[in-house]
Design a protein around this nucleic acid. Sequence first.
RNA 1: GUCCCCGUAUUCCAACCGGUAGAGAAGCGGAGCUCAAACCUCCGACAGUGUGGGUUCGAAUCCCACCGGGGACACCA
Length: 946
Amino acid sequence: MSEAAAPASDMPPFRYTAALADEIERRWQDVWAREGTFHAPNPTGPLADPDHPRADAEKLYVLDMFPYPSGAGLHVGHPLGYIGTDCFARYQRMAGRNVLHAMGFDAFGLPAEQYAVQTGTHPRTTTEQNIERYKAQLRRLGLAHDERRSVATIDTDFYRWTQWIFLQVFNSWYDTEAEKARPVAELIAEFEAGVRSTPDDRPWAELTVAERRAIVDDHRLAYVSQAPVNWCPGLGTVLANEEVTADGRSERGNFPVFKRSLKQWMMRITAYGDRLLDDLDTLDWPEPIKLMQRNWIGRSIGAHIDFATERGPVRVFTTRPDTIFGATYLVLAPEHELVDALVPAAWPEGTRDAWTGGHASPRAAVEAYRKAAGAKTDVERQADTKEKTGVFVGDYAVHPVTGGQIPIFVADYVLAGYGTGAIMAVPAEDERDHAFAEIFELPIVRTVQPPEDFDGKAYTGTGPMINSAAPERGLDLNGLGVADAKARIIAWLETNGHGEGAVTFRLRDWLFSRQRYWGEPFPIVYDETGAAIALPESMLPVELPEVDDFSPKTFDADDADSNPETPLSRRRDWVEVELDLGDGPKRYTRETNVMPQWAGSCWYELRYLDPTNGERFVDAENERYWMGPRGEGDCGGTDLYVGGAEHAVLHLLYARFWHKVLYDLGHVSSFEPFRKLFNQGMIQAFAYTDARGAYVPAEEVTERDGGFYLGDTAVNREYGKMGKSLKNVVTPDEMCATYGADTFRVYEMSMGPLEVSRPWDTRAVVGSYRFLQRVWRAIVDERTGAARVTDAPADEATRRLLHRVVHGVRGDMEGIRFNTAIAKLIELTNAVTRLPETPREVAEPLVLMLAPFAPHVAEELWRRLGHDTSLAYADFPTADPALLVAETVTYPVQINGKVRGRVEVPADAAEDDVRAAALEAVAGALAGKEPRKVIVVRGRMVSVVA
RNA sequence: GUCCCCGUAUUCCAACCGGUAGAGAAGCGGAGCUCAAACCUCCGACAGUGUGGGUUCGAAUCCCACCGGGGACACCA
């Protein structure tokens, strides 16, 4: 490939080589930067520009998931999405829209800190270096970003607003009546006025200051809680549920995670469970991502039902209250708080042997079971899902409907963390309960009539209720359908005080604090009573202080009993502070946890809109213009958001939550941040291992005789990611050096649909290079550098092809089908190449259509065609509809599904004429037989059934 | 185990509402250009759409089953 870059001595001076491409690209990048070509005007504020060509145009907000700037730099896979959004944004700008496209950096977080620890430098130093490197690499690709809007989450100007939003969350509560967040000041006012009663109904005025504060704190959307959390000693921090994998390890680093009861900051995302779920319907997102969010939120609609015991009621949650007559036993999670109270000294009369686990007393049995369950890892528990285990606690509960006694078990198939940690077991209508009942010989009573041909065990479908009447209690569900039965039983439970309808979520509150250094400090101090107090807005930002040792305290990865220690707590002079918060100078202690990496990415898309605003996180008018709803019921948000599918639940769920809080408080007009989401595919690569299994440099491997060799040694090929350790990294820098950025961009966009993962093939890049060379040569004289186009009109066939291509490319651009758009441009180029001279009427639209993909060479050609302004705002070509309809159409004629002839007729020929012409064309094949049926598909084909 | 997506030429991929399987790229073979080569230009070969059924005048496209690859969920009551 080096021959392409090295011009031979007889090379024409204006041939499109890598060297010329490099010169053109750098020159145009300088022009764009100098002239601010891609500055998008705001409606108001410092970035407003009424004279801008798109000042009054329809807006379009195109967004990429901003990168975390790693120390390794970019490989060719990283910019795929960025190039895709750039092509889309450039097209839309030429099509007349005011396009906002910017790029920032997600720069706080664990990896930056770990990298800094490895290299022994401050995280800010390494992170800022990495950002500069990323910026240089991205600039080299010619991405048309509005560079004025670039932000990094570590900028003090940025994170002061992250802290400000935290304060909004902290100072809010969720009003379940109004179904929205409201300021806590309004809550306090309602308590004071007596409109809202306190938990124990005492008047607000009679409560102590501490009592009042506790009540208010219990309502806040950000709150401190002492609760079981995911403690990861290997990382030295706690983690959110979303950051822990299904097998109980940290998503980052793959360290073991333990449940520890610790005091931590939480965010009440569960209050938004319904809206996060329901509003998915308003979003234009890939269905798999919506499904993953639905699964994660996991809303279950059912009922809470109380079963009386001598030690108090056991409250269960069920989605099938209609099947209550089939509830033949209860199951509590091993950790359930009532278990100890329920366990009697001895097995009651008539206890079956199978229920005791072979233990002499219920206490021994329960303790042994708990110990065994606790010793199991989550992986083992999952592997055991088919074999149900459990033990009888030695006591019975009263069935609220039948009044009968049913036994109570503990079993680990009931999870402490979901619902109430207790269930009523209905073996006839639940597969898990059925499996358990079989092992423990428990009664199975059908309450839903299965179809006659049903031969399974538990029947979970619908059907008429049976065996479900208690006339003496005024309850009869028999004959009802499942839905009606649910409604009636819930009404009965509520009337009789045995329970009520209930909704449960799998979603847990979001654990929001981390025991790390490299994150946003909380704008929170504690007073002498230990109460958390929000700092006033005027004290923002709370700057991250310097520390001698920014590395976190980590522990042996398996040391479950270790305790977190925050790096900031070592700076006593920072932690202990004297402030005047309204009642004179007092001593306070600062919060020493920092926010999780997700905080900055929860709202960065809003800051792009108004990055220089010092008064607000974003001006209301600017937000309404760029992200506001397009009509009644529209959710608003960015018009396109491109990124990988790996953020399906984490970032995308957290960002939606924050956005909704801001919406409720009136700070934004859109109730969703990302209207349309697009997941780009991954660029994958081959890697090669030798006989020992060690990776060998992929670029040195050759293919011959159907095998792969490094020199003379046969090596093994595998397919997967691109990575340093796999020795198969190809960088955009290499591609730019060998072919130029335009070739690289065209290649990435032409390899396949943007959403599809595909293998990288360096050898194939040359195809895109040849294409750009053909375009160049069709327009520029390689000897003189002058344009060699003719002003004579194009011939009819070329003109028709041009308009077909224009029409097709527009459709492809709107639909993000860049690979087929480029194929059409190549087709047009190849047609032009065959002509003795290139007509200007084809050359100009070709250059304009090429511009989104290969912007530098397109600008250069545009200039050489005699234009003295950038084509960034030139009108994208429009097809003449008259030239899209062909004058004649060739119909293939099928007889019994096989093509037997062709017939050419005028495009506007009547159906009967087409039929007659077709039959005539295949008269020989029909051999005089009368066709049974003739089908004419207008413009397509004729099918004859003989 | 359940659900979702994908299987088209040697490879990456097109084929829009079911209507002639090929838009584009790589690779391969040949010819032209050249002292020779590279570049370039032109020409060419290569699949009947994972397998088996079904619906239809007609199926890559719709339906069913199976095989292969990828992903999600995995006791959530």
